[in-house]
Design a protein around this nucleic acid. Structure first.
Lengths: 344, 344
DNA sequence: CTGTTAGCGCGTTCAA
DNA sequence: TTGAACGCGCTAACAG
C-alpha cells in the first residue's frame, strides 16, 4: 500500500516498536517521552534509554493531529518577491532572528512566509489549515482594512507596527511618535536650524514618525515646512536615486531626519557625492539601528528599536492569545543612539 | 473530551461536514479537492463550491500523517543566537528570500531554524520527526565531519557551500576558487602591485576564495606573501576592529581582496578613517554583492553570487532527492561586478 | 502507576 | 464514478 521511497532505506520506527522493546504499552511510552508525572521514574528512564538507542523520535504530525496543536507559529515578512525590497528589510531580518530565538525558547517552530495573507483574502491561511497555532505579522502594510478583516476572523495574531486608533488586533512596536520626536529634538538640540524629513508616510509607522517630527518642531516653536518633507515613496533600491533628486532640488536644510537607516545611509552617500559633508553641512539621524549603522562612515546617529525585546514580547503575547488569554498592545520605548552623523 | 480553547469560537469544519453538505462520501470530497481524475467533473464543481463557501481547508496534519509527506522543507541558517552575527549574514538572508520564493513556487512551506543540527548530534532533526521532507543547510560550518555524519544518516539534504573533495552530500554554491581568481586578477589588471587578502579560511568557502587568490597571484608570476593575508577570524561586529588592527600594522599593500562585502565595507570605513583613500591608496574588491554594495561610497566592486538561481537550484535538487532521484553537486559561475572601489 | 480503548482528519484501498 | 472500511502514529480518557 505504501511504497517506500527508494531513497529511504530505513523503516520508520514507531512508538509501537519502542513499546515492544521496553515491554510496556504505547501509552506508557508516550507518557515517558512527554514528561508526564503519571509514570514511575524507573520506567521512564528505561523507556528513554531504549528510545534514544533506537534513535526514535515522536512523529510530529500524529501528535499535532491528536492534540490539535502544532507548536508552530507562522511569521509573515513583507519582503517583496523579486528584486524590490522593503525599505526596512535589514530591520525585519534582524527581527526575524529575534523571533526565531524567542519561539525556539518556547518550544515553537517558525514557519516563514513572505506573502501577506490578507492580500489573498483568507485562502491558504495556516491557522485554518492546522499548520500553525498563530501568526506574527511584520508590518501593518498599506491595506489596513484588509488586516482588520483578517484579524476579526483569526484572533491568534500579533502585528508588529504602529499604534493606530481602533485596531482590532494586538500590536507590538516602538512608540514611533516618541521616536520621531527624539530624533528631531536631537537635531534641534545640536543647533540645526532647518530640519527636514525623509520617508514615505503611506507606511503607518513612518506616518507616526512624521507626526513626532512635526510635534517636535511645534514644541520648539518652529514652522512645519512641507517643502522639506520629502515623502516620495521608495524602497531600498530607489533610496539612492530619491536622495539624489532631493539634493538636486537644492539643499535648503542643514539636517535631515530619515525614517529608516537604509534611507539615511543612501542619503549620506548621495550628499557626500554631491560635495556636501555629513555632519558639517547636513546632520543626519536615521531610524532602526541596523547592524551596519555603527560601521558606516560617519557612524550613523539613529533611533534604536528594541529588536530582541520586541521579538520576545510578540511571542509572549501571541502564546497568551493562543491559550485563550488576553493580550494588550504594547509599545516599547525607542532610544536615541548618538553617533557621528549628527554631531560635529 | 476535547475542550474548545476559549479563544476559538468556531468549531473546525471537517471533511465529514462538507461530505454531508454535498450529499456525498468523504472519499469523494477528498478526491474532489485533491484534483483526482476519479471523479465526475460535475461532482467536483459542486463539492468545490460548497467547500469554498464553508471556508473549508484540508487539515494539513492529517494529510501529512496519511501521506507520510509534509510538503515542507527545513532551512538551516547559521545566524548566531545572540549578538554575534555570521560574517555573511546579509548574503544568507537574501538567499533565504530566494529559497522562500523557490519553495513556495513548488508548493512547499519553509520551516526556519537557526541552529545547525549536527551540533546536537541528530536529536531534534525535523526529517525524522516527520516535520519536513528535506533540509537545506546554509553553509558547511566548521565541523565538516559532523556534517558528513549527518548527511550519511539523512540523505535528503542539500548544502550551500564550497566544493570540497569527498563530500557525501549534494552541494550547491559558487565556484569560489574561480571567484577568488577573478577578484584578484581584476586587482592586478587595474595595475595594483601588492594585493592582500582578508578573510577567515576556517570557513570552507573562504578557504577556496583564498586558494583562488593564490592561484591568480601565481599565474601573474607574483609571490604569495603571508604577511598580507589577514586571516584573523571575525564576524560582522568585529570586522571594523579587525580592519583597524590591519591598518595599524602598516598599510604595505595597495589593494585588498576581502572575502565578503561586510568585511570590505568595514575595511573601507577603517581605511578612510585612517586617512587612506579608496580606491586611490587601496583598491578593494568584496564578495557577495549584497544590496548595500551598490549604494556604498565608493560603490563596491565585488563578486556576485547568483542568489536567485542558487535558491532555485537547491530546491530543485532537493526535491529530486526526496523523490528518490539523483542530484549532482552544482557550482554556479560567479561574476565580477566592477564598481568604484577598485578603479580610479 | 499502567494498560486498554478510542479517535484526531484524512487518503487509499477494495468492492460495487 | 462512488462508497465503505481501514489505518497513518499518537495521546487522552477511563478503568484497574
Amino acid at each position: 500500500m505504501e511504497q517506500d521511497r527508494p531513497s529511504r532505506t530505513r523503516t520508520e520506527t514507531t512508538m509501537f516498536d519502542i513499546a515492544k522493546l521496553a515491554g510496556v504499552s504505547e501509552a506508557t511510552v508516550s507518557r515517558a517521552l512527554s514528561g508526564s508525572p503519571l509514570i514511575a521514574e524507573k520506567t521512564r528512564m528505561r523507556v528513554l534509554q531504549i528510545a534514544r538507542s533506537a534513535n526514535y523520535h515522536v512523529n510530529i504530525n500524529a501528535r499535532s493531529l491528536r492534540q490539535k496543536r502544532t507548536r508552530s507559529i507562522e511569521v509573515l515578512i513583507p519582503l517583496a518577491t523579486r528584486g524590490r525590497q522593503h525599505m526596512s528589510a535589514p530591520f525585519y531580518l534582524d527581527m526575524l532572528g529575534a523571533l526565531s530565538d524567542a519561539l525556539s525558547d518556547q518550544g515553537y517552530d517558525l514557519l516563514l512566509t513572505k506573502k501577506a495573507p490578507w492580500l489573498d483574502g483568507v485562502e491558504k491561511n495556516s491557522i485554518q489549515c492546522g499548520r500553525a497555532d498563530g501568526i506574527i505579522i511584520m508590518g501593518q502594510g498599506q491595506d489596513l482594512e484588509a488586516l482588520q478583516r483578517f484579524a476579526s476572523m483569526y484572533p491568534q495574531i500579533v502585528v508588529w507596527g504602529g499604534h493606530l486608533p481602533d485596531h482590532n488586533y494586538v500590536v507590538v512596536g516602538t512608540d514611533n511618535v516618541s521616536g520621531g520626536m527624539m530624533a528631531t529634538e536631537h537635531l534641534i538640540d545640536v543647533g540645526r536650524k532647518v530640519v527636514g524629513f525623509v520617508g514615505d508616510p503611506a507606511e503607518p509607522e513612518i506616518a507616526l514618525r512624521l507626526e513626532g517630527y512635526k510635534r517636535a518642531l511645534a514644541a520648539a516653536g518652529r514652522k512645519v515646512d512641507d517643502g522639506i518633507i520629502f515623502d516620495a515613496p521608495f524602497d531600498g533600491r530607489e533610496a539612492r536615486a530619491a536622495a539624489e533628486r532631493i539634493i538636486a532640488g537644492g539643499v535648503n536644510f542643514d539636517a535631515l531626519f530619515c525614517a529608516s537607516d537604509v534611507i539615511a545611509m543612501s542619503t549620506m552617500t548621495a550628499l557626500r557625492r554631491a560635495g556636501f559633508s555629513v555632519p558639517d553641512d547636513v546632520a543626519i539621524v536615521g531610524y532602526d539601528d541596523i547592524r551596519m549603522a555603527a560601521n558606516f562612515d560617519p557612524a550613523l546617529t539613529t533611533i534604536s528599536q528594541q529588536i530582541e525585546r520586541g521579538g520576545v514580547t510578540m511571542v509572549e503575547l501571541l502564546l497568551k492569545l493562543i491559550d485563550g488569554g488576553n493580550a494588550q498592545t504594547t509599545l516599547l520605548p525607542p532610544e536615541l543612539i548618538v553617533r557621528e552623523s549628527s554631531i560635529g
